[in-house]
Write a protein that binds this DNA or RNA. Structure first.
Length: 526
RNA sequence: GGCCCCAUCGUCUAGCUAGGUCUAGGACAUCGGGUUUUCAUCCCGGUAACAGGGGUUCAAAUCCCCUUGGGGUCACCA
């Protein structure tokens, strides 16, 4: 039997990073077994704007390269793939359940049900349904129905049973039916509830493995009972732990972003994100985009390979040493029995480390494209198709080397893209290395002249020139190099100084030196 | 509160199914040293964990029980 897995998101307008990992496990299991991965949209409560709410979810799947064999936009033999359009299936299944006596119409007022529940709680007893409606005679039911009395449909729980779940990840888990109230499976308007619709769809779509977050574990006995009542072949189960926020065991949540901002383990990620997002015109404090969402990583310029690698290693491992896995390796090696049982916190440090690795593996042209897009968004280049621009960006990327972990890191070397006037100087270090030292300005003036006289403005000769200049002036290179760097790049540290100077070009370097010297002089004035 | 799940370095994890080879391995982070004009990279090295208590056993991180702690879930939400 071919393996069929599914991911059934509710269209909420964003893709949760934890949900993405659950989806990844589903996808991986299907691909590993040459099976199918299905996307089904759980929109049982009516949706406002489907494009807006579903778009980001599909975009996240596309970005990470998780293709679906059946679902929205691609269709398939078990469509439609929107639960809101599958009403007829639920209606039919509901009729069967009513017919077979596995479910019953409950006319009890919800206020009464509620009161019983509260009373039970007060007396510390387990609440189970009163089942008062079960003693109604057929003609009474018919009359109530004719009168239009509202009722819900409940599944009749076999109270003497136990449900045993054989979970791929949890092992054997038992639930005692005598403790379970009869769950509502259809509202008074006839619409299905989650547990019911899911069961009908999983069966109709021939899902073989239900791989989902562990918070659904307590729904599972109800779903198993429903499958039995419907005479379905019950799928296999695998409840994966949820993704916790860094350094905690709490489920990561969109509503807790402000709390995460103060979390030291999250710090580095937020710093990187804030810096990049503000650069491309997104307000990082608005929380419309946050590390809880997949889109955040895309915007900041993370690589799909890095995000995927981080997600797959969260709660799953191949052995005692494999860390890096490509798409293909993941598919080949992934198995459910190696998924861990406990919740795992997302580790921003490790995520960044995976980024570095996959960025270093990335072909030059893809690096270029990623950076071009970033620079374009920030307005630092005009035309990303321009050959000259591309050549320049390529050289900057080469120069930045492994400093580039995500595409957004290209802004760390913005000195190559801003105008001389826009160049922002690290004032604290400028004070320390240029303004305060007695002879710095004089030296720089002298150096400026030498540079001006040089025709060969390439790295090696420039290095030699600077070296001999230091010897001649009897100063340490440690005094002159940083000062020069500050003047022409605005930064205290960065890529190779001489190659940077070469790339900036003579005109720019001289101009920036002039400006900096002037600035230093004016600051030295008493 | 009921039910259910979980528990190894700061973090992600290996080891647990079939107890000994575990003075508990790897990775990230961190600290120290080396390379480098700076930063980053790279190389070398260090610190660092079986939640606690009882059993079972010649032997327990591994099996059993209890405690503690953490988490999930208890809707006419998904």
């Amino acid at each position: 039997m071919t393996v069929r897995t599914r991911f059934a998101p509710s269209p909420t307008g964003y893709m949760h990073i934890g949900g993405m990992r659950t989806a990844l496990f589903n996808w991986l299991w299907a691909r590993h077994n040459q099976g199918q991965f299905i996307l089904r949209i759980d929109d049982t409560d009516e949706q406002r704007n489907m494009d807006e709410s579903l778009g980001p979810i599909l975009a996240a799947f596309r970005w990470l390269g998780l293709n679906w064999d059946e679902g929205p936009e691609v269709g398939g033999p078990h469509g439609p793939y929107f639960q809101s359009q599958r009403r007829h299936l639920y209606v039919a299944a509901l009729a069967r359940l009513l017919e077979s006596g596995h479910a019953y119409r409950d006319f009890e007022l919800s206020a009464d049900t509620q009161a019983q529940r509260e009373a039970a709680e007060k007396e510390k007893r387990v609440y189970v349904s009163s089942r008062a409606s079960l003693s109604l005679k057929d003609d009474e039911v018919a009359k109530y129905l004719a009168d239009g009395r509202p009722c819900v449909v409940r599944l009749l729980i076999p109270r003497t049973d136990k449900v045993v779940i054989n979970d791929h990840i949890r092992g054997t888990v038992e639930f005692d039916c005598s403790l379970m109230p009869d769950p509502v499976i259809a509202r008074s308007d006839g619409s299905p509830l989650y547990n019911f619709a899911t069961v009908v769809d999983d069966a109709e779509m021939e899902i073989t493995h239900v791989i989902r977050a562990e918070e659904h574990l307590s729904n599972t006995p109800i779903q198993i009972l429903l499958h039995r009542a419907l005479d379905n072949r019950t799928p296999e189960w695998a409840h994966v732990p949820y993704v916790a926020s860094p350094g905690s065991k709490e489920k990561m949540s969109k509503r807790k972003i402000d709390k995460y901002r103060t979390n030291p383990q999250f710090q580095k990620l937020f710093e990187l994100g804030d810096q990049v997002l503000s650069r491309i015109g997104i307000d990082p404090k608005s929380n419309d985009l946050s590390p809880v969402m997949v889109a955040y990583y895309q915007q900041v310029g993370f690589l799909p390979a890095g995000v995927l690698n981080a997600l797959v290693r969260l709660g799953w491992s191949l052995d005692d040493q494999t860390e890096f896995l490509s798409h293909g390796e993941m598919i080949r090696k992934f198995t459910l029995d190696r998924v861990i049982q406990s919740a795992a916190g997302l580790d921003p440090d490790k995520l960044l480390n995976f980024q570095s690795h996959w960025m270093s593996e990335l072909p030059a042209n893809e690096k270029l494209n990623g950076c071009l897009r970033m620079l374009k968004q920030a307005g630092l280049i005009d035309d990303e198709d321009d050959k000259e621009t591309q050549a320049k960006v390529s050289r900057v990327i080469e120069l930045a080397a492994d400093r580039l972990r995500v595409f957004g890191d290209i802004f760390q070397v913005d000195e190559f893209f801003v105008t001389d006037e826009e160049l922002r100087i690290d004032l604290k270090n400028f004070q320390k290395r240029v303004v305060q030292p007695e002879n710095a300005v004089v030296l720089l003036q002298d150096l400026r002249q030498r540079l001006s006289d040089t025709d060969d403005f390439t790295a090696v000769p420039l290095h030699e020139l600077l070296q001999s200049f230091a010897v001649e002036k009897q100063v340490k290179v440690g005094d002159i190099f940083p000062a020069l760097r500050l003047c022409v790049t605005g930064k205290a540290q960065g890529a190779d100084l001489f190659r940077s100077i070469e790339l900036l070009g003579k005109v720019c370097v001289l101009h920036r030196l002039d400006r900096a010297i002037g600035q230093a002089e004016s600051q030295r004035m008493p």
